[in-house]
Computed example of a mutant assay.
Amino acid sequence: MRFIADMMLGRLARWLRLYGYDTLYGIEDDDEIIEVARREGRVILTKDVALAERARKLGVNVFLLRSNSLEGQVAELKRLGIKFGELFPANARCPKCNGPIKAVPKEAVKGKVPECVYEKYDEFYICENCGQIYWPGKQWREMLKMDRRLKGT
């Protein structure tokens, strides 16, 4: 399932990407959101009742979310049948740009990450679109904590 999230759901969009869902985000115009969803077969994620109603009238799939919290939004999506399986790096997409992420040999990031990071870690991933490099540091550990909370919802 592929999504397009409206501007109110940026945090959810990033997390869906980390779980491997192709999720567009950043389009501000409702008409454009509906057109992209229709053209690409994406499900619209929104908290905007008017956008949801317009999309439905045009035959576009839409999930109208009620919760303001990430945990609540994930719980709503689970009730709709969305699975939150293995978190990053398995099948993950870049939380910044939605591009695919792949594992790379340590040597591939030499000179592209701080020397202390290069020395401390052996596991690295890179976004094939924007080139962002990821490694299992502090943010990764925080991400795993949130993953446990989300799976408990």
Rank of each mutant, 00 (worst) to 15 (best):
I126D: 01
G41Y: 09
G26L: 01
D147L: 15
R79D: 14
L87H: 14
Y19E: 05
V60R: 00
M8D: 08
E40H: 03
P136R: 11
R39T: 07
M146I: 15
L9F: 10
I101F: 01
E128T: 12
R56P: 09
G99T: 07
K145T: 11
Y118I: 12
V117G: 02
R79G: 13
C97R: 00
P100S: 06
K47E: 13
E86K: 12
D31P: 11
D22E: 15
I27N: 13
A50Q: 13
A13Q: 04
L58D: 12
K47L: 08
V60Y: 01
V113R: 05
N91K: 11
P95M: 02
L144K: 13
K47F: 04
W15E: 15
P114H: 10
E119N: 12
G85A: 07
A90H: 13
R39N: 08
F124Y: 12
V60W: 01
N91D: 09
N129L: 14
P114A: 14
A108P: 00
E123T: 14
R148N: 08
R93M: 08
R2E: 10
I4K: 09
Y125F: 14
N129K: 15
Y125C: 02
A52K: 00
A103V: 04
F124E: 03
C127W: 02
M8P: 00
E119G: 06
S67I: 05
V62R: 00
P114E: 08
D6F: 06
P100I: 03
V109G: 07
P100A: 09
Y21S: 05
V36R: 02
L24I: 15
N68M: 04
W140A: 00
W140R: 01
K112Q: 02
N61S: 11
D30K: 08
A5C: 03
D122S: 11
E40A: 05
E53R: 12
L64K: 13
C116Q: 06
P114F: 04
L87D: 06
C97P: 01
D31Q: 08
C97M: 07
K83W: 07
R39V: 15
